[in-house]
């Protein structure tokens, strides 16, 4: 689950525009269980494996999100151009990125179902940047997202850029997802303790 309001730090992984859900997690891999602790690791292994190699990890390209033989990535923050997450409604897309270790995305715009799934499922935080930063940030740059001041800091280049406040979804993001939000507001009963 995403942490409320704390700074989010990590290495950048940079992508272009219209990264659709088939590129985020190719359909052939949607068969794995998201609940089974071992099986779900496949999602981390294959996250972003549908992106054509030359466009994966810009500006150089040919950088996979998750290294060969690994199930977690060394990168924590995706920086992308417009319309991130377009295409299908598969929640496996934000889930796969979370399983790979992605904490947040910075893009000027998102496809709405991906955005909604990211927020309602509490997988990661989709921040909207004011400008397209995909050509200014390099894959591997050390980033810090300052949620209090709505800034993206590039520690490697010593630059900073404004990001938009979360707006109407902030309460759900900070609750950690739609279920936690609904429980806080009495719409869903408190979870019963699990009995073995």
């Amino acid at each position: 689950m995403t942490q409320a309001k704390k700074p989010i730090k990590g290495k950048a992984f940079v992508l272009g525009k219209n990264i659709d859900t088939d590129q985020i997690i190719p359909a052939a891999h949607l068969v794995y269980s998201l609940e089974d602790p071992e099986e779900r690791k496949f999602y981390g292994k294959y996250a972003l494996s549908g992106v054509p190699a030359a466009e994966s990890g810009l500006p150089k390209g040919n950088i996979p999100l998750t290294r060969e033989g690994m199930t977690e990535s060394e990168f924590a923050i995706i920086v992308a151009s417009d319309n991130f997450g377009c295409g299908s409604s598969r929640e496996h897309a934000p889930a796969a990125l979370e399983i790979a270790g992605i904490k947040a995305i910075i893009s000027p715009s998102y496809a709405r179902i991906f955005y909604r799934n990211s927020v309602d499922g509490g997988f990661l935080i989709p921040f909207e940047s004011v400008e397209d930063l995909s050509s200014r940030i390099n894959t591997g740059d050390e980033l810090e997202i300052d949620q209090e001041n709505h800034l993206l800091k590039n520690l490697s280049q010593n630059t900073e850029y404004p990001i938009k406040p979360l707006g109407s979804v902030a309460d759900i993001v900070h609750a950690g997802g739609i279920f936690e939000y609904a429980r806080q507001n009495g719409m869903v009963p408190k979870r019963k303790p699990v009995t073995e």
Binding site: R90, D120, G121, I178
Partner: peptide, 24 residues
């Protein structure tokens, strides 16, 4: 499924959602 919007052809409000929203 994202193509749930197909049903709008019948004057219905129809849209695609994820697993968490469906569970909700």
């Amino acid at each position: 499924d994202s193509h749930t919007c197909t049903a709008g052809a019948f004057g219905q409000f129809a849209t695609g959602i994820g697993n968490t929203d469906a569970a909700f």
